[in-house]
Amino acid sequence: MPRLLKAHLGVTFAFLYIPIAVLIVLSFNRAGMPTAWSGFSVEWYGKLASNPKILASAWNSVIVATISATIATVLGTLLALGVERARPSPARDALLFAPMIVPDIVLAIALLSFFTLLKFTLGLHSIILAHVVFNIAFVCAVVRARLKGFDWSLTEVSRDLGAGHFVTFRKITLPLILPSVIAAALLAFTLSIDEFIIAYFTAGAGQASTTLPMQIYSMIRFGVTPEINAMASIVMAISFALVLLAQRLNHGRIPGA
């Protein structure tokens, strides 16, 4: 049994990593066709670096992810602090859980209809507004998990000693929850930078609000080129680095776990 289990785990890991490995290997493939090996080359990385549309969309994604993760981290952390101290409310918990499970396409069209009805001009800002919605929920969940074992008497002591709310937050609460807050922020950043459908529907006119996943989607739709392999490899390297960082900060726990 254990040997069988070990073998199963090995197969599962192979299943998870072979597709990724194949993409990375093929990103160094010289030929125009990405499916047969024809010699080592880094030219697709060069092509990528000189493609202004990809660079612009990557930059847009960074802007969206940074701002939406920042807003969501602040609001989500405060929400977590409030919720953990307030009386339990199933309705509120449902509200906090909903953004994580509403299908992307439903939230996307709901927001598009909403923005259209309000004659709200779409752009990067509307993507940011939308991304904050699901990011708040994730940040709140990560921080709440950390607060589960939190000793609230510490904050009471601080306040008994005459410290105000803000001082207590800054000197006591924040340092204790900081690792989970940073992990949550990195999680929010990663989720936002990868998100496609909601961005696709809530983006405004033009290259100015095209994000990287939107660019990747149109590249995939328009054909399999080694450029996508190169980009996939870079995107994966960056996300892996971020997760690794988040994991370190969150005391070896994977954010969201």
Partner: peptide, 11 residues
């Protein structure tokens, strides 16, 4: 989809 959503604004 984009144009009907924005009323053509932006193009």
């Amino acid at each position: 989809g984009k144009v009907t959503a924005s009323g053509g604004e932006g193009y």
